[in-house]
Design a protein around this nucleic acid. Sequence first.
DNA 1: TATCCAACTGATACGGAGTATCATAATGAT
DNA 2: ATCATTATGATACTCCGTATCAGTTGGATA
Lengths: 155, 155
Amino acid sequence: MITAAVKHTGHRHPRPRSAAIVDDIIAQLSQQGYRDTEPRRLVINAAAAQRRPFTAEELCAALPCVGRATVYRGLRLLVETEQVCRVLLEDRELRYQLSHQGHHHHLLCAACGASADLANCDVDALLQEAAATAGFQMSGHWLEIYGRCADCAVV
Amino acid sequence: MITAAVKHTGHRHPRPRSAAIVDDIIAQLSQQGYRDTEPRRLVINAAAAQRRPFTAEELCAALPCVGRATVYRGLRLLVETEQVCRVLLEDRELRYQLSHQGHHHHLLCAACGASADLANCDVDALLQEAAATAGFQMSGHWLEIYGRCADCAVV
DNA sequence: TATCCAACTGATACGGAGTATCATAATGAT
DNA sequence: ATCATTATGATACTCCGTATCAGTTGGATA
């Protein structure tokens, strides 16, 4: 019998630090009835390796041995299960990044492409209220914030 | 000599109420060096005739005698000159609608497709501040609000 | 550990949305 | 009326994402 700790993952080297993330996501997917497959792991792993919001095509390029459709399907599944969130750039380019828990918005740096999470912000409540004033039942929203991060800020 | 009031616009019937809007927009474009052309007027007129945010393809369909590229170019020009604003639906479909002055956001009804303007809302200030707290210089944002308008509200 | 079905994959084709190209036409300043 | 500039329209093209479908794989079951 092979225990989880000893089980090979296909890597000859020590498991990268992203392996835990992959396992965690795979576990959550399994719980929801989705299978643990090699291509799916590769997609999650590649997504976790990104340091910036990335495009689906970038993932495809990073995973030449995984079919394009599979990459797209994998991303879609991850978005649906809220493991990954979608980010919209100013030019409407769609990018992705791993979710870091709960509802939040993104501060997107136009200079370096970095993304910072904006949590603990009561925009939602404000919008809900403003919408209600107009007799509108708000059910959702899309908000992206553009500018420059601390590192790229113009002095 | 033909005065502006008498000048024919190609209509045999009384000028539709949108004609004033078209003239106004054309005037603003002229001021910026853009020409007053028939296809461009047709695009503006068709845009003004819409009651809901519309897609570029819908305009194309409504203007079979105007080239598709021209419709797209016209819309792009109108967006650049801020005569028309872009609206993003939840499924990322891009729509357009005439601008109604100043910065504002849209309340988009998922049931009937209507759009209401949300003005006099200090979201911007709130975001600016929240972003600054994270050391982020905000330069812009994209915000769309989804839900149900007063008419379509679920009781 | 053998069986089996549902889920998954990958190659491919397809479709929609928007843009580039370029020869021709129209505008409006002179 | 002339003429340089801008605009148009037909078309081809790119890009992004999805549908299709035959073949494969995962993992539940016994």
